[in-house]
C-alpha cells in the first residue's frame, strides 16, 4: 500500500486541535453543508440524511485518527489509499462548519482574495481562520501529492 508521511509543525498545529475537535463534536448531529433534499419523499429524505451523517462522522473519525502518538511525538501524519479520501472529505466538512459559525463575520470576498489580516482578528476568529487555512493546506497537499500515487491507486 502506497503511503506518504508528512511532518507538520507541532507548535502550529497542536494548538488548533481543540477547536477542530469541538467542530467535529458539533458535526456529530448535523450535516456540514445544507443539502437540497426537498424533492425527495419524506422517508427517503430521512434515510438519505442519516446515511450522509453516518458517512460524515466516519470521515471525521478517520481525520482525528491522524493525530495519534506519532503526531504528538514528532508531528508526523501519514496518508494512504485507505484514509486519503475520508480525510479530504472531513477537512471539507470542518471547513464548511468553521465558515458557517466561527468565521461568519468575514466576507467571502475577504477569504477568497486572501485579504484577511490575521493580526487584526480577535483571538477566537484568528484561531478559526488558522484552522481553516491549515485544513485547506492539508487538502492541497493530499490532492497534489497523492492524486496519482494514492487516489488513483
Amino acid at each position: 500500500m502506497k503511503r506518504i508521511e508528512v511532518k507538520l509543525s507541532l507548535q502550529v498545529v497542536a494548538p488548533l486541535l481543540d477547536l477542530i475537535k469541538a467542530v467535529v463534536d458539533r458535526l456529530q448531529g448535523r450535516l456540514a453543508a445544507p443539502q437540497h433534499l426537498q424533492d425527495l419523499d419524506e422517508e427517503l429524505r430521512t434515510d438519505w440524511r442519516s446515511d450522509l451523517l453516518g458517512g460524515q462522522n466516519d470521515d471525521c473519525r478517520r481525520f482525528l485518527a491522524l493525530f495519534d502518538r506519532n503526531f504528538f511525538a514528532d508531528g508526523t501524519v501519514s496518508f494512504d489509499e485507505a484514509n486519503a479520501e475520508p480525510v479530504l472529505r472531513a477537512c471539507t466538512a470542518i471547513r464548511l462548519q468553521l465558515r458557517e459559525q466561527e468565521l461568519k463575520s468575514l466576507s467571502d470576498e475577504m477569504i477568497e482574495s486572501g485579504g484577511v489580516d490575521v493580526a487584526q482578528l480577535g483571538e477566537p476568529v484568528q484561531k478559526a481562520f488558522l484552522c481553516y487555512v491549515f485544513l485547506a493546506t492539508l487538502q492541497e497537499l493530499i490532492i497534489q501529492h497523492l492524486d496519482t500515487a494514492i487516489l488513483e491507486g
Binding site: 479530504l88 467571502d108 487538502q139 490532492i143
Partner: peptide, 16 residues
C-alpha cells in the same frame, strides 16, 4: 457554487 470548497478539490471530486 459554494464559497468554501477549493477548486482543486472540486476537480478531484468530479474526476472521482
Amino acid at each position: 457554487n459554494d464559497p468554501v470548497n477549493l477548486m482543486s478539490y472540486v476537480v478531484l471530486v468530479f474526476r472521482r
